[in-house]
């Protein structure tokens, strides 16, 4: 095949005017190793087109794809469908787990509290209760007695106040005699 013909085919190829047979001619030409320098720039394209047409879907690829599809299908359906027998088993096991947790918690708290002696303090003997109450009442009565003494002292204060009142009266009378006009205005009389 001469180069002129190939060049002509190439021109028509890029214009989209070649037939399939002519395009096959071009592919065959460029597959051949002895391509002249001037046309070598077109070689990669046609070699690429030939090699791409040989690409096949292998058996392993298809199996791998099928596996992926099954895996996806499983992932989509597993949440939706649980057989009823299994469902009951889930409920039962959940209840059992809850129960075990509760019992465990009760024991744990009891053990911890027992070690610290909480319950001994919370359950006092009657004797202890009596003595403690007595002590408390005693404290109140002693306080009350000292309080009464203070009130007694207040009485002497009251007496003293009475005397002062008398002095006040005397002072009032005195001013009434000496300076009667000052009585008109009680606000200044202080």
């Amino acid at each position: 095949m001469n180069i002129k013909e190939i060049e002509g085919l190439l021109d028509r190829y890029y214009e989209g005017e070649t037939t399939l047979a002519e395009e096959q001619k071009l592919k065959d030409f460029f597959l051949h190793d002895e391509v002249p320098e001037t046309l070598r720039q077109h070689q990669p394209l046609f070699r690429f087109l030939i090699s791409e047409a040989k690409l096949t879907l292998s058996e392993e690829n298809q199996e791998a794809s099928l596996d992926r599809r099954i895996e996806r299908y499983r992932g989509e359906t597993s949440i939706l469908s649980v057989p009823p027998g299994k469902k009951r088993l889930y409920y039962l096991s959940a209840m059992a787990a809850g129960l075990v947790l509760l019992i465990g918690l009760v024991f744990l708290i009891r053990n911890e509290a027992g070690r610290k002696g909480y319950f001994e303090n919370l359950r006092p003997s009657t004797e202890l209760a009596y003595s403690q109450t007595r002590q408390a009442l005693l404290l109140v009565s002693v306080g009350l007695n000292t309080g009464l003494d203070e009130v007694q002292r207040l009485k002497t204060l009251d007496n003293a106040m009475e005397q002062i009142q008398r002095i006040n009266k005397f002072y009032n009378y005195q001013t009434q005699f000496i300076n009667p006009e000052r009585m008109q205005d009680p606000s200044t009389n202080k």
Partner: peptide
Amino acid sequence: LKDKIFRFAKRMLGQTEEAEDLVQ
């Protein structure tokens, strides 16, 4: 037709794995 479908899908999608799945 599997190979033709595969090549076409790979040309369009650019990925082998996606093209394989598309054939299915």
